[in-house]
């Protein structure tokens, strides 16, 4: 594993979270290169979380769904959490009608909420307050 793969999709590191996104023009080769690069980076950067932003995707067909699911599985195997964020409404509706769903894939409404789940807070102080509210009794 000498040369790092380069799929052309930027992968940024924020602390121990890797942030990246998927763009629409994804073909087989690019998908493979992207998966390779991401897994290399998870290990190299000792990432505990991966955020994949799909808010630019106008289309998720069975091919893209498979890629996302494989990415999720691979990331989990490497000990990191992965969140897929920002699916567009039209895409979500089409996916359920297609009968697909993304079993086993964690999702968030946008990158910010995804990052919050992966341990990042916008206002670090509120984290404690949030936890307390969670203990309020509710049925």
């Amino acid at each position: 594993m000498s040369d790092p793969a380069n799929s052309g999709v930027p992968i940024l590191r924020l602390g121990d979270v890797l942030v990246t996104g998927l763009l629409d023009e994804l073909d087989d080769k690019a998908a493979m290169a992207f998966t390779e690069e991401l897994t290399q980076r998870i290990v190299a950067d000792r990432a505990t979380g991966v955020l994949i932003d799909i808010s630019r995707l106008e289309l998720v067909d069975s091919f893209v769904a498979r890629i996302l699911m494989e990415l999720a599985t691979t990331t989990r195997l490497l000990g990191a959490r992965v969140i897929v964020a920002g699916m567009r409404p039209a895409v979500a509706i089409t996916l359920v009608e297609l009968g697909l769903g993304l079993p086993g894939v964690a999702t968030a409404v946008n990158a910010e909420q995804g990052m919050a789940v992966l341990g990042w807070q916008r206002h670090p102080g509120s984290q404690a307050a949030g936890r307390e509210a969670a203990h309020a009794p509710w049925r």
Binding site: S62, F63, A90, T94
Partner: peptide, 17 residues
């Protein structure tokens, strides 16, 4: 509509693949 566009393009993508 946008949703219908997505449906048609997704179906096309499946069939063509």
């Amino acid at each position: 509509t946008l949703v219908d566009q997505t449906r048609v393009v997704t179906a096309a993508s499946e069939l063509v693949r």
